[in-house]
């Protein structure tokens, strides 16, 4: 029996050694891009492509608590502001505007209901919608959650905006208390059906945790790690947006 067990473990050794071999890095700036492989860009963002071509891109971030950072510089260090910064860097000559409609503890349905007003006020060509965590925490009926997502996409699209989803954060300490599974799955299914690019924040942060890029288990009141995580998320979301806009770029005669 023991011999058999050793054999099985030996077979598994390459798998087990792989994540451990990555050393934690002090400067995560470059390293967080190792998650780029996890980003899928299957669905075109045509309205974003047109906005970029017109040299004027307006983005609305709709989200809950995990789109925020506390502190006096919270707003400028959280991923929405970092997304704007990254987009602006990569789109020289394009005027990138960003507005946010972010409040903690909001479910998808609550955000969906507030979306029309935020769209009318800001006229974005892209809505980045972060959701799922609060619905999971409150145990919202998964079906209602999916319906809210569907409706939100409809509202954004009829207001002339593309949509990108951001799913829940990977939070190792609270994993056994918040059942994200069903909500992450439903979000993925809605995204697939509606041709919405999904920024898989959960898998990306899990990869960072497994690789030792960030110690997401650490108990601290300090903000430095949280700020670096948000910076990485902002830049990777920017990559997803730009790649998806590329596939959605007008072909010869202005799209459609």
């Amino acid at each position: 029996m023991m011999r058999r067990l050793t054999f099985v473990l030996a077979l598994l050794a390459p798998v087990t050694l792989w994540p451990a071999s990555a050393e934690p890095v002090a400067d995560a700036g470059a390293d967080c891009r190792s998650a780029e492989a996890h980003i899928e860009h299957n669905f075109p963002l045509q309205k974003v492509a047109r906005a970029i071509a017109a040299k004027h891109l307006s983005v609305l971030v709709v989200g809950a608590g995990s789109s925020l950072l506390p502190g006096t510089n919270g707003a400028s260090n959280a991923y929405p502001a970092r997304l704007q910064f990254a987009l602006q860097q990569k789109l020289p000559g394009v005027d990138v505007k960003l507005s946010i409609d972010v409040k903690a503890k909001r479910t998808a349905k609550e955000m969906m209901k507030a979306m029309a007003a935020a769209l009318a006020a800001n006229k974005p060509s892209l809505v980045v919608w972060q959701t799922g965590t609060v619905d999971a925490m409150q145990g919202i009926d998964p079906d209602q959650f999916s319906q809210a997502l569907d409706k939100g996409i409809g509202i954004a699209r009829s207001a002339g905006a593309d949509v990108v989803f951001i799913n829940p954060q990977y939070s190792p300490r609270t994993e056994s208390m918040i059942a994200l599974g069903t909500y992450a799955e439903n979000m993925r299914w809605v995204a697939l059906q509606q041709d919405v690019p999904l920024f898989d924040r959960f898998s990306i942060m899990k990869l960072w945790s497994d690789n030792g890029t960030f110690d997401l288990n650490s108990a601290t009141k300090k903000l430095d790690m949280a700020e670096r995580v948000h910076d990485c998320i902002g830049r990777l979301v920017a990559d997803l947006v730009l790649e998806s806009a590329k596939i959605g770029a007008p072909q010869t005669d202005g799209g459609r």
Binding site: A64, G65, S66, L68, L69, P70, G71, A104, K105, T133, V134, M137, Q169, S171, R173, T174, M177, I178, L216, S218, A219, T220, K221, K222, L223, M225, A226, V229
Partner: peptide, 10 residues
């Protein structure tokens, strides 16, 4: 952890 203020609400 300030990164998880939302999740801590649970």
């Amino acid at each position: 952890n300030p990164l998880y203020s939302e999740e801590m609400g649970v």
